[in-house]
């Protein structure tokens, strides 16, 4: 199983090497929005602070967010719908491995490529923009599971939405909606703590914050004690729900697909 996963990843890397520039442009594109808000908020903060965040802390927040956004962004959620719509699901279903392997292989292969591009740029920006962060080992240790869970949540949530392509040809609209909600509620346009009260509540309840902002807040030390544990609990609960949703939609979707034919 692992061997076939690595083989799929290798095949993808070989394919992508044909399109180096396309993928780096894509990675750069994902970086642009956080960079804009980095400059907006750090400029606005100036020499004082906004809601307790200084200029340097905004820089740190957004530099971490660039990496977290890249690591958690699930590009395959878009391609799974295409597979179903264009009838290429047949080829995937004929293989003796679970079809989600294709998506997972593509995810991991993608992360490696994007991080090769992102990490040097973020390091360079850190040298120029002088982020300020109260770095603590315990936060760094908590960041690792928060990041892993954020990726898993974003992946299975998006994958489940993409599977709606089994029923509707316009399932991508939901993925676009999800990306907008992530932009608003997952700490991209502003850190969640700076949102108006109503939106802040929505951000804490809905799953989107736990896909991006939560690990960033954990690493930059904006969460402590009860907030941290509450965050993990919410993240874990949403992940379980997203996974169940994926399993249910995959089973019923596949039953439908094999009933109507692809």
């Amino acid at each position: 199983m692992m061997r076939s996963g690595f083989a799929l990843m290798r095949g993808l890397w070989l394919s992508w090497l044909q399109y180096r520039s396309f993928f780096f442009i894509l990675a750069f594109g994902w970086m642009i929005a956080p960079l804009i808000y980095l400059f907006v908020w750090s400029t606005a903060a100036g020499d004082s602070s906004i809601a307790g965040l200084t200029r340097g802390e905004f820089v740190a927040y957004y530099l971490v967010l660039i990496i977290v956004n890249q690591v958690t962004y699930a590009q395959t959620n878009w391609t799974v719908g295409d597979l179903i719509r264009y009838g290429q699901m047949n080829q995937v279903l004929l293989r003796p491995i679970p079809p989600i392997f294709d998506a997972l292989a593509s995810e991991f292969a993608g992360k490696v490529v994007y991080l090769v591009f992102d990490l040097p740029i973020v390091a360079l920006l850190a040298l120029i923009l002088r982020p300020e962060m109260d770095f603590q080992l315990v936060n760094a240790l908590a960041f690792i599971p928060a990041l892993a869970l954020a990726w898993a949540l974003r992946f299975f949530w998006g994958y489940a939405l993409a599977l709606l392509a089994f029923w509707s040809t316009r399932a991508d609209a939901l993925l676009t909606l999800q990306d907008s909600l992530i932009f608003l509620l997952a700490g991209q346009v502003a850190p969640v703590a700076l949102l108006p009260a109503g939106m802040q509540l929505a951000a804490r309840i809905l799953p989107f914050r736990y896909m991006v902002a939560f690990p960033v807040e954990v690493l930059t030390g904006h969460l402590a004690g009860a907030d941290l544990w509450l965050g993990f609990a919410a993240q874990g609960s949403w992940l379980i729900l997203a996974f169940v949703l994926y399993v249910v939609l995959w089973r019923t979707g596949l039953r439908r697909y094999t009933a109507v034919g692809g």
Partner: peptide, 16 residues
């Protein structure tokens, strides 16, 4: 986008 030999290797692994 890649030569057939590379696809064959991937399939060889997929089918173990």
């Amino acid at each position: 986008d890649i030569p057939p030999l590379d696809s064959f290797r991937v399939l060889g692994e997929v089918y173990a």
